[in-house]
Amino acid sequence: MHRVPSLLVSIAPVIALSMLAGCREPASEPSPAPPASACAPPSSSFAWIAVRPASEASPEEYPARLLRTSASEAVVVPPLPARLVSLAVRPGDTVSQGDPIARVVMPEIDVALATLTGADSALAILRRRRTQLGLLERERLVQASEVAAVDLEIARHSADRLRASAVITGAGISRGGTIVLRSPIAGVVTEVPATLGELRRPEDGPIARVRSRVGQRIEATFPARPAEGATYSFRSAAGSAPIALVNQVPAPTGLGYLAWFEPPAGAEMPAAAEGRVLVHSPAGAGTWLVPATAVGARGPGRFVVARTRSGAGAALVPVELVRVANADAIVRAALPEGALVASDPARGEGLVDGGARP
């Protein structure tokens, strides 16, 4: 009966040691070392970016409007009140320059022609009579009042002749009767707001309106003088077409330039009153597209830090800044195709090894 407690006392230290051993955490395995690339400092604090041809640059865009000109739209209007005898066209008809539009009679032209003819005849007779009277006047065989009366008639018929000539010259018509009014341009007849038999006055508006598919001009305002060597196009909701710069002047406001464009000869423009002029930068040899941040400034000059793909060194290359296009810059520089430029020229300049060109 007394042996059990003594046995418990003897094994108690062993049980306690076992419990302590079970409570200890197992020894953890050593964690793997981080890769060397994660600990190593970056090779540079900027990027090397390949240059691209300037033709890949996004074009600049400026609001523009299509202008009607004498070559793109014309009206047929009688120069004097005219009675409409016949119409030769209807809306939608295609006409060539000089095609008949309407036939009219103009009473004022008939009167002017008759007055001109009568004045010429009367003046011929009166001048002969004046010559005869001049001979008699020297011999005192004619009264001065008779000579004065002939001079007065000559003056009156001369005035009639001048008025008739002015009407005929102003109308641009040299004969009377039925007169044919013709289309000033080639195009499509868009309106014929006239009625047969009516007396049409110039202030009543045109007998017909003709619109050409060509001959328009485009006007746009630029913030700066258009770049030399650039190409242009006009874009609207109706489509796009190439255009050429015709002329440019400083804007009347003093801000920017007004520029005018036209399509190639015979080319049709999109049927829209407004659109945008797209400026495509020069894409000749030596013109490149680089990040705008890659262009550094030193005094009045500009430069990039460049190297070739295979070269280890870098060079500082002077550039001419053509324009900035969004996040890119278009530059002229002696860079080889495939060259790389530093995105940060200030930091890249520290790698320049002697300044040689890449």
Results as ranks from 00 to 15, higher is better:
T195V: 02
P252H: 07
M269L: 15
H2K: 08
A47F: 07
E146L: 09
T293G: 03
T287P: 06
V317R: 12
A194N: 06
P35H: 09
R309C: 03
E198M: 06
S37G: 08
R103C: 08
E146Q: 11
A312H: 10
V319A: 08
R140A: 06
Q143N: 07
P300R: 11
R302E: 06
G296N: 03
M269R: 10
V51Y: 03
P100I: 01
S183T: 10
L351W: 06
V180W: 05
D353Q: 14
A119N: 09
H157W: 14
V9R: 13
I11F: 14
A273C: 07
A325R: 15
R127T: 03
E262F: 06
S240I: 07
G134F: 00
N326I: 04
F261T: 14
A312C: 04
V147M: 11
P59W: 04
G350H: 01
V150F: 08
E153H: 03
I125Q: 10
T94F: 08
P206N: 01
G22P: 05
P78S: 02
E29H: 11
P26G: 02
E268Q: 15
L66N: 06
E29L: 14
A314W: 01
P78Y: 00
V95S: 08
R83D: 14
R65S: 13
L278Y: 05
R52C: 08
S28E: 01
P53F: 05
S121I: 06
G311T: 05
R209S: 03
A285W: 02
R225K: 11
A272R: 15
V290N: 02
G299P: 03
